[in-house]
Simulated scan of single mutants.
Amino acid sequence: MAKVLVLYYSAYGHIEALAYAMADGARKGGAQVDVRRVPETVPEEVAHKAHFKLDQAAPVADSAELEHYDAIIVGTGTRYGRMSSQMAAFLDRTGSLWARGALNGKVGAAFASTATQHGGQETTLFSIITNLLHLGMVIVGLPYSHPGLSVLTEVAGGAPYGATTIAGGDGSRQPSEVELAGARHQGELVAVTATRLFG
């Protein structure tokens, strides 16, 4: 059975919701799945004042864990069209894994959120994917087998490069069923791909 890690950073809970949908999809694809979050780097007092969602159930990850998985799905909110500094700081700690080629050939995938439709979803996905490619990983995106990529009747996130959600400028919009379905579909594809590669 393939082992999949869903690794995320979520300040306000939108990416957390997508992470658990991604995990559900990966389990449907036959994988053993763990959900972990990266450490918060913002001082707790500042996080409280900014109304960060600090009661997230997922355990905090350690970069040394990554090599024990067949697939790693990475998600984060967008900061100026790129990944959050919290996720970047975590990935910057993977230098020893890169040096040993510990993740070469493993499956990688990305998901993200933005405040608006045009807030940099695809560039954020690429900022994650670039790191995964440098680590030697094989990328699984979100193909058009997810019908939500063709939805025109409502505002919806999602791109061929990964599942996304739109949070709204005040964070009040939660992931829609179309967006959650995209995450589940991508998670399932990651699990199926990892199983084909690693049994």
Rank of each mutant, 00 (worst) to 15 (best):
A71E: 07
G81W: 08
G136V: 10
R173V: 09
P143R: 00
L149T: 01
G169P: 00
E188F: 00
R184C: 10
E188P: 03
F111L: 05
Q86M: 02
S150M: 13
Q117G: 13
L91Q: 00
G199C: 08
R37F: 11
E44M: 13
G148A: 08
V138K: 01
V138H: 05
L180R: 11
T78Y: 03
T114E: 07
R184G: 04
D92F: 04
D170H: 06
V138E: 02
K28P: 15
D62Q: 11
L197S: 12
G75Y: 02
S172I: 02
D62I: 01
L180A: 08
T165I: 04
Q117S: 14
T130D: 09
A89E: 12
A21K: 07
E65W: 11
W98L: 15
A115C: 13
P160Q: 08
G158H: 12
V46W: 01
A71Y: 11
A115S: 15
F198Y: 12
V60Q: 09
H51N: 11
R196P: 00
S172H: 04
G169Q: 10
Y9E: 01
A64I: 10
G101F: 06
V4W: 04
P147K: 15
Q121T: 07
T116M: 09
V74C: 05
M83R: 01
E154K: 06
I15G: 00
H134Q: 05
R100E: 13
A163H: 08
